[in-house]
Design a protein around this nucleic acid. Structure first.
Length: 835
RNA sequence: GCGAGGAUGGCGGAACUGGUAGACGCACUGGAUUUAGGAUCCAGCGGUUCAUCCGUGGGGGUUCAACUCCCCCUCCUCGUACCA
């Protein structure tokens, strides 16, 4: 065979073309085969792919290719999350239409992805901005509306002044817009909401189904975000009705502290405040307080450092169990949006209430005696467990028991009930943006809000509009869009001009891939039944709450609408959150000028080297620092594999991996090489297919290559020797092929094989090949390593002990000591306990 | 504060159920080859007073044996927070 240098560019082009022509990665429903659906989070078509994408998709591709070799029918698709604000910003900046910009970016990025040789079924490619896609979303919207899971509500909303749109709660991060970091304002608007809270309980409970399959921290973040609290709603009655209201409700997780209540605190926004303070002596003063608090910046008001402030209203309520009058205060720390907007003040057991009581000289009633007794002077709230005191009939109970007892008592009196609170709020999906899917409703003068008829879908987003220079949507001004007839009465009506949050599109795209070209329905039932759920989902941890929570909710809602299969509880069975690709310890960014361009790297080293390095540099879930020396090393390894192959010339026979037999292994050298081959198959199978530890899989293959270099020097060219060597070579190519498919296919072909390496099955390990004639046994004396001895396999315990004791070093370390005990770990170690 | 994760050579990282700590790679050193450099191949590479002793953030403990299990502490990263 003639020596050829490794030319990655030519090889990669050749195989990518061949794969495409052969439709190598096309898949379809096959009830005879076990399916495996591997999915990477689809990209936003921002312009160019970056290293984060490359890493994400390399992980997915190795899994897809490995699973195929394992005999699974693999679905591995790719598409574009194509609606969104950056397209509009680009439109303003570069005077292009968002659609034009988006489709051009998709073309660029698709060709960049293709250069990496990912094994996608491109026939299933989708872009969420196409009417063929979003029309189904509009249909889901209507069906959810019909089911009462979509509703319209006027409320203060998160408003980003720079993006000219509202934001969902999940999209406000530290009071700033998740996308542009602008300070988010509150604005009263009528908006469309998805009733995600109806699924709060299930979204929380089903996280248990994902335990061990999703990263613990993602589960924790979701639990946290849903924020379920068990407690009690307590009703404090007013001495006389105020504006027709007879009582004030508070939510507490500590009903056991009810007898310690010495005041009630209301949010300044509480609906009853106005009536409560009317006519009070210091009404003006109270009003000033309320105005001041309400006008405070939202961020400042929520700041940890904000001092607790309050004012007495002069009004009071009656304690539900003692009947004592309890003064009502207003407090700047009470949130109108959580619970009932009112809290009971228990300074003894709550630090916040304690501080508040100290500041305003309010009384403290001890109600739980800790194990070590009451402190002579209380300097902070007592939050620990103990025995009830000063609590009437509940005295003497453990406070944990009292929680239930007091709740029951309140229930029997009709003054309270067990209650659950969630932090989760409904999902505002209205966006005052142009580049999104239109919300399919109209406003009719006679009929009011009317849903569009399903047969009229899609409500097309007009593409002949220009985004306004200040970034606002052109839709409200566009007569041809807004003007329409009412689906109900046929009269003049106006179309909704808000579009849907783009997180709607990403909440169901994974299901659309199962039948992406279906035009008569959103999904083909057969395909969906077969492929869903996604077996392995891969993406960045930044989506831990937003996207993953929405997609989980959507899945449950669509299941309940009968759209998804009944049995589908969760969309993503397993989740891998990959780490970031850093440069010099920090995130790559244009402003820092530390961006490593994947295309440049492919030009210089080839896609296989880039793929190899991305997977070898670190375990997938960890961040890794891009290193120029590191990728050189990966490049060197592939050149080394190439050279090993090329320099082996006549030794190479067109054999399969693990094809050499035990009879071929006539010498220790050959046996050792064959053992190494089979050890490698075993380890790599585990690391690639089960543990997703690609770095150690690659390390193991490197070991085999190193062993082949050494063995080759000492090997002859007898037929059985050729078979041993060629088998090992075939194994290297087979195991490495999910990582560096182009190189491996090329060498496979040069080896003389007719079929594609990608169609080979996973090599079978011969367990007997793993056995050794001589075992290397570590000998310890009192737990410290003192010798390594080589013994024949199959030695019994006694003989092994004798061999260990006979060792010089061991003799030295046991000299003068009595051997108390000998522990033998078969095949590994002998520990001699001597005193 | 609460929740999750982490700390191992000069560096990235191995060690899966407790059983030879540092696989593999990078960097470095030496040798071979070469006019030279590069590339390549081979070897070395935690520290040390080198047949010793010390070493997996620190301190205790369990065990014949601990990176691994238990208790306490420090630091780092991420998330979250007047949530009643």
């Amino acid at each position: 065979m003639q020596q050829k240098p490794y030319n990655a560019q030519d090889i990669e082009k050749k195989w990518q073309t061949r794969w495409q022509n052969e439709g190598a990665w096309n898949c379809s429903v096959d009830a005879q085969k076990k399916k495996y659906y591997v999915l990477e989070m689809f990209p936003y078509p921002s312009g160019n792919i970056h290293m984060g994408h490359v890493r994400n998709y390399c992980i997915g591709d190795v899994i897809a290719r490995s699973k195929r070799m394992q005999g699974f029918n693999v679905l591995h698709p790719m598409g574009w999350d194509a609606f969104g604000l950056p397209a509009e910003n680009a439109a303003i900046k570069h005077h292009v239409h968002p659609a034009e910009w988006t489709y051009a970016n998709i073309d660029t990025m698709r060709s960049q992805l293709k250069r990496l040789g990912y094994s996608y079924d491109w026939r299933r490619e989708l872009a969420t901005c196409r009417p063929e896609y979003y029309r189904w979303e509009q249909e889901f919207f209507l069906r959810l509306l019909d089911k009462g899971l979509v509703y319209r509500k006027k409320a203060p909303q998160n408003w980003c002044p720079s993006c000219h749109t509202v934001l969902a709660n999940e999209q406000v991060i530290d009071g700033l817009c998740w996308r542009c970091d602008s300070q988010v304002e509150q604005k009263e608007l009528t908006q469309w909401f998805l009733r995600i809270t109806a699924y709060g309980e299930e979204l929380l409970a089903d996280l248990d189904l994902l335990a061990g399959k999703w990263p613990e921290r993602v589960l924790a973040m979701q639990r946290n975000w849903i924020g379920k609290s068990l407690g009690c709603e307590v009703e404090f009655s007013l001495p006389s009705p105020v504006d027709g209201t007879t009582s004030l409700k508070v939510f507490t997780t500590r009903p056991d502290t009810l007898f310690g209540v010495t005041f009630l605190t209301l949010a300044p926004e509480h609906p009853l405040v106005e009536a409560l303070i009317r006519g009070k002596d210091n009404e003006e003063e109270i009003r000033d307080f309320i105005t001041r608090i309400r006008n405070m910046d939202r961020l400042d008001r929520q700041a940890e450092t904000l001092e607790k402030e309050g004012i007495a209203t002069g009004a009071s309520v009656l304690h539900p169990l003692t009947g004592k009058a309890i003064p009502i205060w207003l407090g700047n720390f009470v949130l109108a949006s959580y619970g009932t907007g009112a809290v009971m003040g228990v300074p003894y057991a709550d630090q916040r209430d304690f501080d508040f009581a100290k500041k305003y000289a309010l009384p403290v009633i001890p109600i739980i005696e800790p194990k070590d007794g009451l402190p002579s002077e209380q300097t902070c709230a007592m939050t620990g467990e103990g025995t009830m005191i000063n609590s009437g009939e509940f005295n003497g109970l453990a406070n944990e028991e009292a929680k239930l007892a007091i709740t029951k008592k309140l229930e029997s009196l009709g003054k309270g009930k067990a209650s659950v609170q969630f932090r989760l709020r409904d999902w505002n999906i209205s966006r005052q943006r142009y580049w999104g899917a239109p919300i399919p409703v109209v406003y009719c003068e006679h009929c009011g809000v009317v849903p569009e008829k399903p047969e009229k879908l899609p409500v097309l987003l007009p593409l002949d509009l220009k985004v306004l220079d200040d970034g606002r949507s052109p839709l409200p001004q566009e007569e041809s869009f807004t003007s329409c007839t009412c689906p109900r009465c046929g009269g003049q009506a106006r179309r909704e001009t808000d579009t849907m949050d783009t997180f709607m599109e990403s909440s169901w795209y994974f299901a659309r891939y199962t039948s992406a070209r279906e035009s008569t329905a959103a999904f083909s039932a057969e395909a969906m039944d077969y492929w869903l759920p996604v077996d392995q989902y891969i993406g960045g941890v930044e989506h831990a709450i937003l996207h993953l929570l929405y997609a989980r909710f959507f899945t449950k809602a669509l299941r309940d609408l009968g759209i998804y299969p009944k049995k589908l509880a969760e969309p993503f069975s397993n989740l891998l959150t990959q780490g970031m690709v850093l440069k010099e310890g920090s995130k790559m960014s244009k402003s820092k000028g530390n961006v490593v361009n994947p295309t440049e790297m492919i030009d210089r080293y080839g896609a296989d080297t880039v793929r190899l390095f991305c997977l070898f540099a670190a375990p997938p879930e960890r961040d890794f620092d891009w290193s120029d020396a590191g990728i050189e090393g990966s490049s060197r390894f592939l050149a080394r594999v190439w050279r090993l192959f090329m320099d082996s010339g006549q030794r190479l026979l067109p054999v399969a991996a693990c094809s050499a037999t035990a009879q071929d292994a006539t010498t220790t050298l050959l046996k050792d090489l064959r053992r190494k081959e089979h050890e490698t198959v075993k380890k790599v199978r585990d690391d690639l297919c089960e543990r997703f530890q690609f770095n150690t899989a690659i390390a193991q293959i490197m070991e085999l290559v190193n062993a082949m270099y050494l063995a080759r020097e000492k090997m002859g060219q007898e037929p059985h020797e050729k078979r041993i060597f060629s088998s090992a070579m075939a194994t290297v190519l087979t195991l490495l092929s999910p990582v560096t498919p182009h190189l491996c296919e090329e060498l496979w072909e040069l080896m003389g094989h007719k079929g594609r390496l990608g169609d080979e099955g996973w090599p079978l390990v011969d367990e007997r090949a793993l056995e050794k004639d001589l075992l290397n046994i570590a000998v310890q004396v009192n737990g410290k390593l003192r010798a390594n001895i080589s013994v024949p396999a199959g030695l019994d315990q006694k003989a092994l002990e004798e061999a260990a004791l006979a060792n010089d070093s061991v003799k030295r370390h046991t000299a003068g000591l009595g051997v108390k005990k000998i522990i033998v770990v078969p095949g590994k170690l002998v520990n001699i306990v001597a005193k």
